[in-house]
Nucleic acid binder design. Structure first.
Lengths: 200, 200
DNA sequence: CGCGTGATTGAAACCCTTCAAGTTTAGTGG
DNA sequence: CCACTAAACTTGAAGGGTTTCAATCACGCG
């Protein structure tokens, strides 16, 4: 059931084009930690002191509303970064939770990494901006979907965008991500199935 | 009816702490343009070649769904930056529109500005990252509201966050921003009024 | 096997939309 | 300055989509 591992050092080399000599240097600035399924990585109220790079496993990033319901803002699978950037960057208490959906191996990236890696490696610095821009792109697209598309379309979009996640996370989490109830998603799926079996 | 003007050069000096000598240099890299109310700044399908800094007036950033409805992703009043960062940064056709809600005076910030300003002024560079981080914060918060809060709460949040905008934009645009219909918002407001007049 | 978690289904309730008036407001030209 | 018009806002009734609550089913695991 385990997915391919995504080593952080390799990631820096391949995706961020950071030179080997610099990688050794900056890798001394991060720690690796394992979380078991269900284990909490960050709780609301705490300050988010790291951005989490997922080498293996799956994290989720969610809020808890007053009525006790979870609302998933983001998933983080292998090769993704997760963290409350607001809390991390602005040093404010977080309003979100992060926990492990699957057993996970995570690289903890703290402020010292960001500060020094940016100084040491220009490649890293520009790649970091790329990541931020990409993050903005995703968030923007998500907002647009939420305000413009009904549940069915949002679901289809999710399946197309993250076919792998569909298979790894329970359906009720997908519902939570889409902003609907598990029952709601179940019905959406049923309707889609009926449509596809009689496609006139 | 006009709001306070927000000069871009002053902005760089005060908010971004860019030194005077650098400001003169980078200001040669931008143009200023006026848009009349209703005028289109960016159309879907085009590449977004500038980020727009609003010195005066008000812009809106929105998408158009297949059924012809507008969905406002962001407003941009004095001192705000507007633009499709996806399209700008990744050089892809935009899926969004930008037009002027009020007559607007806008600074066009192109790639040459970002590239050179980052080289010339370290202050600018870090302030630009601050802006991006702040943008992420807003987008994240908006997503959380959209998936977790009903229309009434989203409306109250909007009023608290942007009391000035409430007075400047037509109600149907607020509705569009909140992801509900104008009629829907009208009813939400009515209910709130009734509650407040009889607060038992 | 029995338990717990996740998925499904049904019925009622609720929120919000749609459509179609009607009312108010703002702007424009006579 | 009034009259006209268009746009914005409100209101009502009907309908759709989702939620809620509860019951049932399916599955994996101790």
């Amino acid at each position: 059931m385990d997915q391919t591992e995504c080593n952080f050092a390799e990631y820096l080399s391949q995706k961020a084009s950071v030179e080997e000599k610099h990688i050794k240097q900056v890798m001394t600035l991060v720690d690796t930690q394992n979380f078991s399924k269900g284990e909490v990585v960050l709780s609301a109220g705490e300050r988010c002191r790291h951005i989490f790079y997922v080498e293996k496993g799956l994290l989720r990033f969610y809020s808890l509303s007053e009525d006790g319901k979870e609302h998933i803002v983001q998933f983080g699978a292998e090769g993704w970064f997760v963290g409350d950037r607001s809390s991390f960057y602005f040093d404010e208490p977080s309003a979100y939770y992060i926990d492990a959906v699957e057993n996970a191996q995570v690289v903890l990236i703290g402020h010292d990494f960001f500060d020094q890696a940016g100084t040491i490696s220009e490649e890293y610095r520009s790649y970091n901006e790329f990541l931020l821009q990409n993050h903005v792109r995703h968030l923007q697209n998500r907002i647009n979907l939420l305000i413009s598309a009904p549940a069915e379309k949002r679901y289809l979009d999710f399946v197309k965008m993250y076919p792998d996640l569909m298979l790894r996370v329970p359906q009720w989490m997908v519902a939570s991500y889409l902003g609907i109830t598990p029952e709601g998603l179940s019905r959406v799926r049923k309707q889609l199935a009926e449509k596809n079996f009689r496609p006139d």
